[in-house]
Nucleic acid binder design. Structure first.
Length: 148
RNA sequence: CCAGACGGCCGGAUGGCCGCCUUCCGGUCCGACUUGAUCGAAAGCCGGGCCGGGGGGAGGAAAGUCCGGGCUCCACGGAAACACGGUGCCGGGUAACGCCCGGCGGGGGCGACCCCAGGGACAGUGCCACAGAAAGCAAACCGCCCCGCCCGCCGAUCAUCGAUCGGCUACCGGGGUAAGGGUGAAAGGGUGCGGUAAGAGCGCACCGCGCGCCCGGCGACGGGAGCGGCACGGUAAACCCCACCGGGAGCAAGACCGCAUAGGGGCGGCCGAUCCCAUGCUCUUCGGGGCUGAGGGUCAGGCGUGUUUCCGCGCCGCCGCCCGGGUAGGUCGCGCGAGGCGUCCGGCAACGGGCGUCCCAGAUGAAUGGUCAUCCCCGACUCUCCCGAUGGGAGGGUCGGGACAGAACCCGGCUUACAAGCCGUCUGGCCUC
RNA sequence: GGCCCGGUGGCAGAGUGGUCAUGCAGGGGACUGCAAAUCCCCGUACAUCGGUUCGAUUCCGGUCCGGGCCU
């Protein structure tokens, strides 16, 4: 997953939330916005700019105390991270930032439904991108992406 | 077999696919520096990316942050006194503890066993609401009893009213009492017998209490014989007294690097004494004098070091309020330690010692996992079979569930949460032999 | 992660070993032609579990919530 960057700082999360592009599913909430322009001054100093033509995609995760105690929050974040690792590199538009928020249903929903929530979220927000790789198996597609 | 007590262990297993963090090795690429030098090439070293391979990767509570330490910085010169906080039967263990072990005393249980902040109330002060006669010096009050006086009544004698004597008795006075007095958490030893005018440790027996003596024990304490006849209520998780312990803060400690802003601004208050003295004003008999006093020195002053005092130290125009600016960037601290396991020895035990062996998490929007399948356990429903049959057992199927909970500098404890299961020791009861 | 505070009616907010003030809100009544204002009356609470004490909101421990601070 070399292509996926990570949102870590609070201002980055607030910027995505201010864009107000949100999709609520039983298992998660998806927010997204276009990244600030390449090499723009808003980008924090020291943030390395990755090469890659039309930009990278970056993801952040949020699990608030409403989800549960520390064990429940960790588990919710891990499930979301696994679903994101399966979907976003192939189907999410680049040059965008994404924030995935855990809900109470994140823990009880089956993993297939969780993945389906994510893809419909991408479709609803208009950031779905058909996989250009022609590989038949997901592994092959991922490998090609990595090679690029 | 049933019921129970205590101590300990474990905290789902296996496999497939896809991942994360860290460390080591090899390869490859990139960058900085140094040597080298004709630009170069090359070598060394450092850092980073990718690929391949090997090793390691949450807990018994990682939790609450309630105690004790290590470690780091500040005060570290100290002292004394005063505070303040904590602990509190005895003896051990320990680096230390409010922890642990073994005892003692008290309480509970048929028992195994469990529970107890368990120093001091004759150093002092305070409090004990309501109720009650009285709540802390022990007396007053009601009541009981005796004596005196004597209103009155009754009886007897002398006998005309009346007098004398005896008995009972209201009021009053004097005295003896602490047995009794609807209370109350608590009432000045308790029960029984004797005793007395009524009573009372007034006397006796037992129990309790106190005092010193002897014996056992390191000690808390226990036992014995004796004496005193009882004087000494509770509360110290009320103040307090005694003994012992404690300097303050905490890894957001602290060190280095980088970035940014600034050596900030506004308002209010205080800006003292003295010495040196630039400058300016002024007087002048030209030697100098007076006033001013930027700046500097000393003292004072303020703040900090728990308070005060003494000296000492640091920061300084000071103090209060408000505004403004920057910041959760990186590296280190950061894991060989009061360490784990095994075994032997000492000890009732906690624990200590010797020997051998092992290296065993280091994340930082925070790794240690995600998913699928099979197995295991539990529950509900259902099918078949068996039996000593409104119940039980065996096998199969479907569905659901499998706890409490996530390291954040590290240890030793305590407390709290926790499904299911396993092991050992012991107690009581029932049945059979 | 560490340190430090606080839980009292629907809300705010005193109290402190002896049966918990006060204000606003709510309900009822009086006054009024009807209201407002005013007056009277009423209901409702010490976060929770233990311990000390005769007696606990208070004192002492343990939990559960809520809040603040760190350079």
């Amino acid at each position: 997953m070399a292509a996926i960057g990570r949102l870590k700082r609070r201002p980055e999360f607030l910027r995505v939330a201010d864009a107000r592009r949100k999709w609520v599913a039983p298992g998660l909430i998806l927010q997204t916005t276009r990244q600030a322009g390449q090499g723009s001054p808003q980008r924090p100093a020291g943030e390395r700019v990755e090469n890659g033509g039309d930009g990278d995609l970056r993801v952040g995760f949020t699990a608030s105390r409403k989800v549960g105690n520390a064990v429940a929050r960790n588990r919710a974040r891990r499930r979301l991270r696994a679903a994101v690792a399966e979907i976003l590199p192939r189907y999410a538009k680049r040059g965008h930032d994404y924030v995935v928020i855990a809900r109470a249903g994140t823990l009880t929903r089956s993993f297939d439904d969780l993945v389906a929530d994510l893809t419909t979220g991408l479709r609803r927000l208009g950031v779905y991108r058909a996989a250009e790789a022609l590989g038949t198996s997901p592994e092959h597609a991922t490998e090609r992406l990595v090679e690029r």
